[in-house]
Write a protein that binds this DNA or RNA. Structure first.
Lengths: 192, 192
DNA sequence: CGCGACGTTGATTTGCCTCAACGATTGTGG
DNA sequence: CCACAATCGTTGAGGCAAATCAACGTCGCG
């Protein structure tokens, strides 16, 4: 919980009463590796804040193929930002790549927090604005880099993920097949 | 200006004093087709709200290739949401695909508005949250659809853009070459 | 009218995928 | 703690979607 306070206080201030309200509204949950936090089709959806471990958000297409949208580790947010607003059923699933501890709140809880602590609107405005910028960067990379360049750029930008994400999920995130990622790595190491 | 008020009032309320402040803070500008609102490398950057016309936001890669990130028509926002927060030089350019009329504010102006009208934080929190959801959808489409499917999906989702966007820019937005888009269209029309 | 930008069409090339087989690693029950 | 299965990663052969390159038609505009 302290981790969330610190994260929020990077952008806005919190007093003790507000911290108490946050602590009352967010609930805690531990999940084992491979367990789901959310499955596609769920109507009840949550904002998750990761205290420990590693999560994966992904989408299953009409052919049953999974496509990874992103990962979340300690001090990161996860959730279907999309449909939390709309109230529609989610098309995304979230599961754990490592045993994880998260705190979470549903839409009702978030609305209560927004009403009681207007500065949270600013906090999430900034969080979403930065996340949006990161997605534009990602789209830019997809369109102007080869798969190999995207892999190198990912390693450089997110070195903390290096050993924590199975290659097949990283391949999916990069938009390539696991086989091709394997060949890329060999090419980078051996030059052939 | 009324268009902006109506847009904002879809999510939060505004009184006359607040409308006056908005009108004082946003400045108006008309640009001809092909003129720039912002060029890559600019340090002074703005939030733009389109009153009339059509804008294009794009990125120029190391090989000099342009990659279109998005379009904006009446009642839409445009701008480098990314670096407006960070203060870094922008890597994006914005120009007009049609003669356009926009209103705009810089970071200082936006900060002033946020301070005077906290409900704007909520408004932009929602705007960014929805935009983020749209970008996740776009990434999902890129990874799980063929170019032809993406073209059809775009036509269906944004019919209002149909006649307004030159094919080469639409091709860039879809992540394909103009030549290939031409062939796609032929295939869809003639079946061969 | 003539120029330049845009769109089209065809021939060829290529980055990445698919399929299949084979190692390596992990996890689980006996 | 081992045996075995299951999952994951690697490697190779062949195929396809989309890129590249080049030539030509067409349209808007000075």
């Amino acid at each position: 919980m302290e981790l969330l306070f610190k994260n929020i206080q990077r952008h806005v201030s919190l007093n003790d009463k507000e911290k108490k309200l946050l602590a009352e509204t967010f609930h805690s949950k531990k999940v084992k590796r491979k367990q789901f936090l959310q499955e596609a089709g769920d109507v009840s959806r949550y904002f998750y804040f990761v205290l420990e471990g590693c999560l994966r958000t992904y989408y299953t297409d009409k052919d049953g193929e999974e496509h990874v949208l992103g990962f979340a580790i300690e001090d990161w947010w996860a959730g279907d930002y999309a449909s939390l607003n709309s109230g529609a059923a989610s098309i995304f699933s979230i599961d754990a790549l490592e045993d994880a501890e998260v705190i979470y709140a549903d839409k009702t809880g978030m609305d209560k927090l927004y009403a009681a602590m207007p500065q949270l609107e600013k906090y999430f405005r900034i969080i979403f604005q930065n996340a949006l910028a990161a997605q534009f960067q990602r789209i830019t990379n997809t369109n102007s880099f080869t798969a190999e360049e995207r892999y190198v750029a990912f390693q450089k930008k997110y070195p903390q993920f290096d050993r924590r994400i199975p290659q097949k999920y990283l391949a999916s995130y990069l938009g390539i097949t696991p086989e091709f990622l394997s060949k890329l790595k060999k090419h980078l190491l051996t030059g052939k």
